[in-house]
């Protein structure tokens, strides 16, 4: 797989320097937010599974940048970055990870089930590929109402080996739903390499058979993602038809919190991780800003400090927030009926 060192590029015409800086700062926020997760987890502030997005920030940032307020998105359980890129309050996202009542799902979903209905973020889902059929339904609903929104559907390379994803891709093409299927290929489904797990390791190639346009793009460079995402989303919104895009990316950390460096040594080398860390999307975006005179060294430091501060504030907010009251246990099972308490 090739991942060339990004060369200097001209700014896409739709991207103002100011907007680029905003997106850069979004990536910084995601990075710092995620970096606060492991220590908080180790302190017992969080539980369950916890999957961080470090290394993949350019993907969610570059695609979500093109969403309108009334667009929709769904994603997998590696969802912190998507929520933050969509503009969800980092404090409430962190509070959800802490299992607190102020969290985006009142503390009832946790890391894997972030949501922000007001922003059209219809949730992070914990079953690999499970959200892909849902996205077809969202897209069908858009068509049904005659709208021109789109639905972005983010999932990993592992999802390409689960049956319902293929049912969904076929149905998306049959009904011409305005859904962008964004396969974030970070090379490993947990510890299983995609070139082992997929007989055709080029996932865009695999998806091409479903009768929708497909593309494989480089995912470690914000401008590259932004440029492709703009074209793809515009195509889906105006045609309309679904689009499958495989984004080549890499997670710098383990699959989840339990996938520590010792475990990672079972499936990838330090040299490989280092190779990809050299392609850090935040570093390359910073270089672009500097080389093109769009930011100074001191501004970069200032933005970095601000993002870190935001992440720390999110932790402090989460830590100070109350746990959900026990009545929440029985709430929200149904919209309209009580579940009996069987307790003596």
């Amino acid at each position: 797989m090739k991942a060339e060192v990004p060369v200097q590029k001209a700014l896409p015409s739709s991207l103002t320097p100011q907007r680029l800086v905003e997106l850069y700062r979004t990536m910084l926020l995601i990075r710092h937010f995620e970096e606060q997760c492991a220590p908080a987890y180790r302190q017992g502030k969080m539980g369950g599974y916890m999957h961080v997005y470090i290394g993949q920030e350019a993907v969610a940032t570059g695609f979500i940048a093109h969403m309108r307020d009334d667009d929709y998105m769904v994603c997998s359980y590696r969802d912190h970055g998507h929520a933050l890129a969509r503009g969800s309050d980092p404090r409430r996202v962190m509070a959800e990870l802490f299992g607190r009542y102020t969290g985006v799902a009142k503390g009832k979903g946790g890391s894997m089930h972030l949501v922000d209905v007001e922003r059209g973020f219809l949730g992070g889902y914990g079953i690999v590929g499970g959200m892909v059929p849902l996205a077809v339904g969202v897209g069908y609903g858009i068509r049904y109402r005659g709208g021109d929104q789109v639905c972005l559907c983010f999932f990993g390379d592992g999802a390409m080996n689960i049956g319902p994803v293929h049912e969904a891709l076929n149905m998306a093409a049959i009904y011409k739903v305005p859904v962008v299927f964004i396969c974030e290929n970070n090379r490993y489904a947990m510890a299983t390499p995609i070139d082992f797990a997929s007989a055709v390791p080029n996932l865009a190639e695999r998806a091409r058979q479903y009768g929708m346009p497909t593309r494989q793009i480089e995912g470690m460079d914000l401008l590259e993602v932004y440029r492709h995402a703009e074209e793809i989303i515009h195509h889906v919104r105006t045609t309309p038809e679904p689009f499958f895009v495989e984004v080549l990316t890499y997670r710098f950390e383990g699959h989840g919190i339990a996938d520590n460096p010792t475990n990672q040594a079972l499936y990838r080398t330090k040299e490989e991780v280092e190779y990809w860390r050299q392609r850090d999307p935040i570093v390359s975006a910073a270089r672009f800003l500097l080389e093109n005179g769009l930011a100074t060294e001191s501004e970069l430091l200032e933005w970095d400090a601000e993002a870190k501060q935001q992440a720390l504030e999110a932790v402090a907010y989460a830590d100070a927030s109350p746990e959900p009251p026990l009545e929440e246990l029985y709430r929200d099972v149904y919209t309209d009926m009580e579940v009996p308490e069987w307790r003596y």
Binding site: V132, P133, L134, A135, G137, V138, G141, E167
Partner: peptide
């Protein structure tokens, strides 16, 4: 045909599509 939708033999796809449409109010 917009309101009476023939589907392929794809039960997960059918169920997921129904759930997704319901999530946005259909």
């Amino acid at each position: 045909e917009m309101r009476v939708v023939d589907t392929p033999i794809s039960e997960s796809g059918i169920a997921g599509m129904a759930i997704g449409a319901a999530m946005i109010g259909l």
